[in-house]
Design a protein around this nucleic acid. Structure first.
Lengths: 235, 235
DNA sequence: CCACTTATGTAGCTGTCGCTACAGATGTAG
DNA sequence: CTACATCTGTAGCGACAGCTACATAAGTGG
């Protein structure tokens, strides 16, 4: 597992436990950021594959097999590239996961915007859970949620993966907490309610739905779960 | 990954997708069942390690690192035995996991008995969630729940692991559904309530708590989640 | 044209994975 | 005692994991 550095090398193995950061220090040019903006103008041979398309494929592999279950061979196969291209663009398997997670969260945040626009806290919860019930049983992609199925517990040498996933999950919880704080200020939620607890509760239900979906639950079953879950907002 | 059978051998690699079953066909004598009953009397050299103690150690390793993240070396190290002893007793890494899961479920069912004895459905839910909030943050064992952290998505060659875990999770859901059906018959739950949906909802919250715990949530935070979650039973 | 920079494909490296052959140890059955 | 059956430790098997050296291709800037 030890990165087997032969001579010496820029230590991009520096155990960056700090999770909020972007991908590691630039090695090569810059760790390809899959934000889709046309690359300004660069020197050297241009990249021949579309980073975002490749990330979508990698995301699917991680999603279906988890971080440790996804092999470089399978990833490169799905991405349509060879290992050196992967390592030049993303630095490492972990770097690739981080990039895929960023892209995953980005897509997720697009949905979140309109969900958070719902007029009441209860309606935010309802829209969110129903939306996720649909997304996590969409035959278009693997069942469940990448942020849960990616790996809650990993072997030695991949200890930060679970942290990475947890950090991305926390984003949603943060957004919900902020929204519920606002809801309380607006009188939508009772004064004695606890926005943080509500957000954490929803975060748990979201994760739970992801687990059920991974286990093969149907869309209708998850929708029922959502219906029951929002009752907690009715007092 | 392919089990690399050299000559020929009893095909205990038979992809036993049927999840309800016991460990594979007997190879050697019998796949050690960790039920603790004194082994009646047997021939050959007696086993020198305590199967249940060893299973407890293996359980902890799977719990902390997941199925794929747990290596044979780490497992045998924790169990205090060498690989041949492991394989003689449990057949394979997957067989060991199954045995550990059975032991996990067994312990869990002991708790469940008194929880299901609670007088009302709501109280069942409350006791259960609070109990799990405590268990999953018990510093005695890894955070979270083995049935969730063990692996929701695995690589090729370990496809049945997630099914295995899901089957064990379903046990709890089944128990809850039965209990809630009884609750409705007793008038404790409304006639128009859906015991299956309530059980599935609770199952989701349980899994969600496991995910939060894996991510480092504190006991108090999980207890708050439990408090919010049971409100869904208040109508 | 020539330097320089970066991406690509082939081939292969080292470490570790799950697992096992084998010989010796330790029990029961007769 | 001799057979037989099973467990245990040492040592190591083949397969594959993540990753990279190297030569070549394909761009930029002068």
């Amino acid at each position: 597992m030890k990165p087997l550095v032969r001579k010496e090398q820029v230590p991009h193995t520096a155990q960056s436990r700090d999770i909020g950061r972007d991908a590691g220090q630039d090695l090569g040019r810059d760790i390809a950021r899959g934000t889709g903006q046309a690359r300004p103008i660069t020197m050297g041979r241009p990249r021949e594959f579309d980073v975002d398309k490749a990330l979508d494929e990698a995301m699917e592999v991680f999603w279906r097999h988890g971080y440790e279950g996804a092999t470089i061979a399978e990833l490169t196969g799905a991405m349509g590239i060879n290992p050196p291209s992967l390592y030049a663009a993303f630095g490492s398997k972990e770097g690739l996961l981080k990039a895929a997670l960023d892209r995953y969260s980005q897509k997720r945040n697009e949905c979140m915007a309109e969900i958070l626009d719902a007029p009441t806290a209860r309606e935010v919860a309802e829209r969110l859970l129903l939306k996720l019930a649909d997304l996590q049983t969409d035959p278009q992609n693997p069942p469940g949620c990448l942020l849960v199925a990616g790996g809650l517990a990993c072997g030695v040498g991949s200890e930060n993966i679970p942290f990475e996933l947890a950090a991305h999950r926390a984003q949603t919880e943060d957004q919900l907490r902020e929204r519920f704080i606002r809801a309380r200020e607006e009188g939508d939620l009772a004064d004695d309610s606890d926005p943080a607890a509500l957000a954490r509760y929803l975060s748990a239900v979201i994760a739970g739905i992801g687990v059920l979906a991974s286990g093969g639950a149907t869309r209708e079953q998850l929708r029922e779960v959502a219906s029951v879950a929002v009752k907690a907002f009715d007092e």
